[in-house]
């Protein structure tokens, strides 16, 4: 560690440049990781909702609905079709509006339609299923959520692609900055390096202090980027919470059973973000300085 601090003291501006560029890159990486995982969580949540909901006319008999349900399941394109009778619809309505007696008085089971909540095996089959249902007699309305899913899907795909492009660009910039600053540091330690080589030090021994310094910068800037990001996040969390009040707990990659929630971020998810940020920082610091030392230490 003393060696690292001596090097920082000797080259404060170069060290600050390395630190700053790593900090910005890793801060953006934590931010984009948070955003991407959040939208993926939203997408997964929306996909768990019925993709097509069919409301039947009040005259449609339960047996007819049952037969439509069976036809859908037999088609092989539907993973599940959940029937909700008028009475069950009333129960749901009552539970949703239990605090509003006026609304409860006005509604009876007769005016609420029976419905089928349909989950397709493939999102691509949704238009065909919706079309077929629209043609059937006794169907009042087909509510089809494909647009919502498609928009979310394209948004998350776009976000992921943009994030990857931004990160690639930043990593290239980081490598260039690290290579330049390390080249400067190597030039300052030229005499020591020559002496070490003459005493019989191998390449790895000569390189190691530079690699250690790169990893230290990656660790320090990753940790600080993480702290700054989550400090801002927790300051703004009350605002986010009120804005996203209807959204339930969002799992990270369906790992909710392990305590990994993107929203609200669980301690395990925060820990995972920290570990990934610091590992990315250490990795970039190590490889940036590895490339630099490969080029300048012969």
């Amino acid at each position: 560690m003393n060696e690292i601090f001596t090097s920082i003291k000797r080259t404060p501006y170069q060290s600050f440049a390395s630190f700053l560029i790593l900090f910005f890159t890793l801060f953006l990486a934590v931010f984009l990781f948070g955003m991407t995982t959040f939208f993926n969580g939203i997408l997964s949540y929306v996909e768990t909702k019925p993709q097509v909901t069919v409301y039947f006319e009040s005259e449609t008999k339960e047996s007819a609905i049952g037969s439509i349900r069976q036809q859908l399941i037999d088609s092989g394109k539907v993973s599940n079709a959940k029937y909700t009778s008028k009475q069950e619809a009333l129960k749901i309505y009552k539970s949703l509006n239990k605090n509003n007696p006026l609304l409860l008085e006005m509604v009876s089971a007769d005016i609420l339609p029976a419905s089928l909540e349909i989950y397709a095996k493939k999102v691509s089959d949704l238009p065909e299923i919706a079309d077929q249902l629209n043609k059937l007699t006794g169907v009042d309305e087909v509510v089809y959520q494909r647009d919502v899913i498609d928009k979310l899907l394209s948004l998350t795909t776009l976000l992921r692609r943009v994030s990857v492009l931004i990160l690639i660009f930043l990593v290239v910039v980081v490598f260039i900055v690290l290579m330049t600053t390390t080249a400067f540091k190597i030039a300052l330690k030229k005499e020591e390096i020559e002496l070490l080589r003459l005493l019989g030090a191998n390449h790895s021994y000569v390189r190691w202090p530079f690699l250690k310094e790169g990893m230290f910068f990656g660790f320090a800037s990753g940790s600080i980027a993480f702290i700054v990001y989550y400090a801002i996040f927790f300051i703004l969390q009350p605002f986010f919470s009120s804005y996203l009040s209807g959204i339930p707990d969002l799992e990270f990659l369906a790992l909710g059973s392990y305590g990994l929630f993107v929203w609200p971020p669980s301690p395990l998810f925060i820990l995972l973000s920290y570990v990934l940020t610091v590992l990315a920082g250490i990795g970039i610091g190590y490889f940036g300085n590895y490339l630099s030392t490969s080029k300048y230490i012969k």
Binding site: L195, R197, L198, L199, G200, N202
Partner: peptide, 17 residues
């Protein structure tokens, strides 16, 4: 490296860090 580890070098300009 092995060869140089067998040898000690003393220079005119000392080369002390």
């Amino acid at each position: 490296e092995d060869l140089r580890r067998m040898m000690g070098v003393v220079f005119q300009d000392f080369k002390i860090l």
